[in-house]
Design a protein around this nucleic acid. Sequence first.
DNA 1: CAGGCGTGGAT
DNA 2: TATCCAAGCCT
Length: 359
Amino acid sequence: MEQTSFTIPLLFNDEAFRHDLLTWYQGNKRLLPWRENQDPYRIWVSEIMLQQTQVDTVIPYFNQFMERYPTIKELAEADEQNVLKSWEGLGYYSRARNLHTAVKEVVEKYDAQVPSDKKELKQLKGIGPYTLGAVLSIAFNHPEPAVDGNVMRVLSRILHIDEDIAKPKTKKLFEEVVKEIISYEDPSSFNQGLMELGALVCHPKNPECETCPVQQHCLAYEHGDQKDLPVKTKQKKQKVSSYYGLVLKNDEGKFFIQKRPDEGLLANMWEFPIVLQEEFDQKELVNWFEVEYGLSINIYTQGKRVRHVFSHVIWEVDVIYASVKGGQKSDGDGKFVTLEELERYPMPNIQQKIKKLIH
DNA sequence: CAGGCGTGGAT
DNA sequence: TATCCAAGCCT
């Protein structure tokens, strides 16, 4: 039997819940860099970085990003390559490109002021339902829901909602729930309090119910089945793809790298050339490279296999070392650079692994 | 809607 | 090692 709507139980004391949550949050919130003030730009950047990324991972990136791009205008004027370099290692790189695009739009259309208007904010690249609510509530104190994984987990337990949180439709349900119980006195602390509770107390596994500030409001705790909530369907297993990765060095000791396409996986990041093994056998590599790049290479050894797990695919890259004649040629997005120059190019972690094998 | 889109921490 | 999953968005 599918549940298409949800009504908050009459038993649920939303006023007492707000009070208990806000009191706990006030006394237990972490001191985080993006909580130092309410600068909408800082809140915005932090929310983008925090998408699917843990707080401890974000902190150093956020601090360096703010040091390098203290204001919207400075970010808007930056080269995308430098923005990606600042994002290097953080993952989901389209976040950085979308943020850069959005910031430029804010400079042009809104005089470099982050719009507090819901419709204007929502139209910006990279701002979806969650980030919209987060920026509106945290930066502007608007009573808008900001429903992320924490909020769905916490509220699914509190209100005993067993809808599959992996389904888009379920998030809308939680947004409706939050609209009904959010604090109009302090929407910022309410939204952050729910997330903070999810991060510090109401863990996915082994929730610390005994010390939970809203235990008395929790239906799942009352039922004793908090470990069965939230309901979430499993993700599919990643498929493995095998590649050859070519570390090419010319007579000047420079290495060949290229820029990836402007969309798809690792868009606009740089890499040592790779090719699917199912498309070209190792015997065909020399000819393939000649045809594809117009360069004659000489393979001299095969190195280690590098394994890298992405969110949806696994790469196994056999590293091939080769020399190349001449190599001043740099048509397309490929070029020869020294190891020192290589440091300036944004490269994803899989490529960093390959780079470390150079000796 | 389902699937593409990174990385690292926790168990 | 395997699996989940973390302040999601885009197409």
